[in-house]
């Protein structure tokens, strides 16, 4: 089975549509959404409608920190993120807000764990930016594979049978075998706000039969996504950064 993973959509309709279409063309049969559907971008309403439709069709979902902030606190967020969340609250109707409130922090699916930030304490929203955080997360779960987002930069960590960590920056389009002899933590790139210097939207495909994970990049209509952010009066940097992937 081919599973498509999407993380950090951040209300970017153009990027999400491009990734969904790409995944469909690749033959993805199952959808996993790793949180942060809203915040930063200009189309939270459209994105939430699409997310709820996917959930109704059987997609697996977890909660992201921006999603939690819609009905909770924006403490710890930078000024642009806070402005975007405050605006998002005015945009979302009750059904979408209730839907977000009901999402779990993590979800187990066979030998796979889905979580927005990491597994050791998901509600602390810790960023996995190196082998130390990755090791903490891997030691907190028995799952063979952990999939998360939150960092907006793709990375792949593994823990060997002898308790050694490895880290790797994946090449887009190259399938990596997630060997059964070790445990893996896949940090996905962001659909709606990539920060690794490549403006193309990021998602991933996991082939359960072959045990191979492919990080995918999809070019999308950045101009329209950025114009929408400006039109809504959101901080200009949130539009500008999309062009450079920062």
């Amino acid at each position: 089975m081919l599973i498509a993973f999407f993380a950090d959509i951040h209300a970017n309709r153009q990027a999400f549509e491009a990734c969904l279409a790409h995944a469909r063309d690749q033959g993805a049969e199952r959808t996993v959404l790793l949180g942060d559907y809203v915040g930063y971008g200009a189309d939270p309403d459209w994105v939430m409608q699409r997310v709820m439709d996917l959930a109704a069709d059987g997609a697996a979902l977890v909660l992201g920190n921006h999603d939690a902030a819609v009905g909770g606190s924006t403490n710890g967020m930078n000024i642009e993120a806070r402005v975007a969340i405050e605006w998002t609250r005015t945009e979302l109707g009750k059904p979408a807000r209730d839907f977000l409130d009901a999402l779990p922090l993590s979800r187990t699916d066979g030998d796979r764990l889905y979580v927005h930030s990491e597994a050791s304490d998901p509600k602390k929203w810790i960023y996995v930016t190196g082998t130390l955080e990755a090791a903490n997360s891997l030691s907190a779960t028995p799952a063979h594979l952990t999939f998360c987002g939150h960092v907006h930069r793709p990375a792949l960590y593994s823990l060997s049978a002898t308790a050694k960590m490895t880290s790797f920056t994946p090449t887009a389009g190259a399938a990596v075998p997630l060997l059964p002899g070790r445990r893996w933590l896949a940090v996905l790139g962001a659909v709606g706000q990539p920060r690794d210097g490549n403006p193309a939207a990021a998602y991933a495909l996991y082939d359960t039969g072959r045990g191979e994970l492919t990080y995918v990049r999809v070019p999308y209509d950045v101009e329209t996504a950025a114009a929408r952010i400006r039109k809504q009066g959101l901080p200009v940097w949130l539009a500008d950064r999309l062009f450079v992937g920062k």
Binding site: S160, T166, T171
Partner: peptide, 11 residues
């Protein structure tokens, strides 16, 4: 392999 994790290097 340029496009796969280098387990030797890391380990």
């Amino acid at each position: 392999h340029d496009r796969l994790p280098d387990l030797m290097q890391e380990e």
